[in-house]
Nucleic acid binder design. Sequence first.
DNA 1: GGAGTGACTCGGT
DNA 2: CACCGAGCCACTC
Length: 114
Amino acid sequence: MKKIDKQICHVVKLIPYGQVSSYGRIADLAGFPRRARQVSKSLQHANQNGLTDIPWHRVVNSQGKIAFPKQHPLYLKQIALLKQEGISVNHGKVQLSQYLWQADIATLVLSLPY
DNA sequence: GGAGTGACTCGGT
DNA sequence: CACCGAGCCACTC
């Protein structure tokens, strides 16, 4: 697994229960600006490898919408997982103003590995 | 190496 | 709100 994938997974795991973040923000926080697309790819890999400890469902696009097309099997699954955490999803999107994770520096620093 | 492809984003219409 | 277009960047042929 590559460095970028590792860092991205690390940050995604920091998203608190009941909150969401976007691909672009995750990329920024992981130290890879302008690499939103890579975030989606990393999550896809993690999904395939069955890494269940990664809350991939808490990641939506910059508009708060589910990134999958409606007919995609994971579309409904993601919504189900979000609602399960108390997050309301309407018309395939969440209210970022209400659920967007405001990452704080302390959380990030304390999550650093030795 | 060039072309096509996204679980993206931003700005314009 | 929806639909483009243009950037964007790693990955796969």
